[in-house]
Amino acid sequence: MTHSGFIFAAWGIVLAVLVLYSVHLVLRGRSLTNAVEPEHRRWLDSGAETKGVSHPPREQP
């Protein structure tokens, strides 16, 4: 294979960046999930709860 250095460099950079970014996402997701109270980890409900999020519904003082 000709120019193998360039080809592997290109593929290597792509795979490395994608893997690193994915790992970063997963780790950040884990730490954030643990920082949020279990009852608020609600994105699984999709739709209703997340759409139209504006500001917290408040309890009256």
């Binding site: 994915s22 997963v26 997701g29 954030l32 920082a35 109270e37 608020h40 994105w43 999020v53």
Partner: peptide, 29 residues
């Protein structure tokens, strides 16, 4: 597909960030 996978994770991270801010806000109120 990679984009879709990343989008789901990245969106959820952003969403959790909002949750933290929001509940921080409840505490602030």
């Amino acid at each position: 597909l990679i984009y879709a996978w990343m989008m789901i994770h990245r969106f959820r991270i952003a969403w959790l960030d909002e949750q933290i801010d929001r509940h921080g806000l409840d505490a602030a109120i």
